[in-house]
Design a protein around this nucleic acid. Structure first.
Length: 353
DNA sequence: TAGTTTTAAGCAGTTACCTCA
DNA sequence: GATGAGGTAACTGCTTAAAAC
């Protein structure tokens, strides 16, 4: 599966965010209530982000990713009851063989159903889940909830031995199944028992398989997130190193200037607007002179505005009290500059893996 | 009401299997 | 055909929050 990495910024957040969302080019209609579920998911995301921010004192923005699986439009629609038997895997193992609903699998299902009925999870948005796949067969999920709960959890974690095999088999999900799960993940990164059960029934998988798939999917998302975070921080480090190098050079130049032409160093501060690499040192901030602007544009190392360059400097930094763009604050305050792309001032990257 | 135990869910880390170059 | 890398389904152990007692 291809993953397109779309790094952009959210509109609402003043800080920069890399939005890692999951999209899939599958024609799936969204049922009513999906928006409600999405609100819930976003609430959870927000809380998670808030938790992260609480833990860290760093002012760094939350970096979020938008993973866009570049899966070609499979034309997948929510399977009807007739099409419930999805295309079997072409790789040998037919994971779509109807799971044996006896034994542990049945208990698991019953457990899940019971859990769904008894679920008091704040995330319980089962009603919003696109479960029009409830139209399959007479094996209703909810009525299974009449079975007493308390099934052994170990059963839920049982290996594939309940399939009759002695060793666990690597069951490959079909493309359709994966696409379906991806679409579900887009709407719910986590599942409540009812959703899990419905999804399992819809895909002819065991609830445990759906559960595992979502766990692994969340792990993959997090991994991608970490990779992008790492990349971002590396770029920050490079930028700061470069800035430091530039400042060191500037300092050396000024010292040399002071040695050769001590006269200049006694001039009023306004003359410092001629500083070759900093256009904002000028004390006459209320009336920037043409000279200042010229110096700003002429200087190769002068920070450029984010709008013009997409670089590190930002208008926010320009608003700093000392009118000196802090590299660090500029790094983390510019809504436009995000040095994560291949180039230091590239457009928001869109990579695929 | 506070403290303890139980239960369920999620996550990190890992293993095992499959596919492909 | 053998092999190593990468992807991923599945497992294990742990933590945590909520419910039950």
């Amino acid at each position: 599966m291809e993953l397109g990495l779309s790094l952009g910024e959210t509109m609402a957040d003043a800080g920069r965010e890399l939005v890692l969302g999951l999209g899939i080019g599958v024609g799936v209609r969204r049922e009513e209530g999906a928006a409600e579920a999405e609100v819930e998911v976003r609430r959870r995301d927000y809380e998670a982000d808030a938790a992260v921010r609480r833990c860290g004192s760093s002012p760094e923005p939350t970096v979020r990713l938008t993973l866009l699986p570049m899966v070609p439009d499979l034309g997948l629609t929510w399977p009807s009851s007739e099409s419930r038997h999805l295309e079997a895997s072409t790789r040998g193992f037919d994971v779509n063989l109807a799971p044996s609903y006896g034994g542990c699998a049945a208990e698991e299902e019953q457990e899940d159903a019971a859990g769904a009925d008894l679920s008091s999870s704040p995330n319980n948005s089962a009603g919003s889940f696109p479960t029009d796949f409830s139209a399959h067969g007479g094996r209703g999920g909810a009525d299974a909830g009449t079975v007493a709960g308390g099934a052994d959890r170990s059963c839920s974690r049982a290996s594939d031995e309940d399939d009759g095999g002695s060793a666990r088999k690597k069951l490959r999900l079909s493309k359709d199944q994966s696409a379906f799960l991806e679409e579900s993940f887009k709407e719910h990164s986590t599942l409540n028992p009812k959703q899990k059960l419905a999804l399992a029934k819809q895909l002819n998988l065991r609830p445990r398989q759906v559960e595992v798939w979502f766990q692994n999917r969340r792990a993959r998302t997090k991994l991608k997130q970490t990779e992008v975070d790492c990349e971002y921080l590396k770029r920050c480090c490079e930028t700061l190193t470069e800035e430091n190098r530039r400042l060191q050079k500037e300092l050396a130049e000024l010292r040399a200037l002071k040695t050769v032409h001590p006269f200049y160093m006694h001039l009023p501060a306004t003359t410092l607007s001629m500083c070759p690499s900093c256009e904002r040192v000028a004390s006459n901030a209320t009336q920037p002179t043409a000279t200042t602007s010229a110096a700003a544009t002429a200087s190769p190392a002068a920070p450029r505005t984010a709008a013009s360059s997409g670089g590190i400097a930002s208008a926010a930094a320009a608003d700093a009290p000392d009118h000196r763009p802090s590299s660090f604050s500029a790094l983390f305050s510019s809504p436009r500059s995000f040095p994560l792309a291949a180039g230091p001032q590239a457009q928001p990257p869109s990579t695929s893996s």
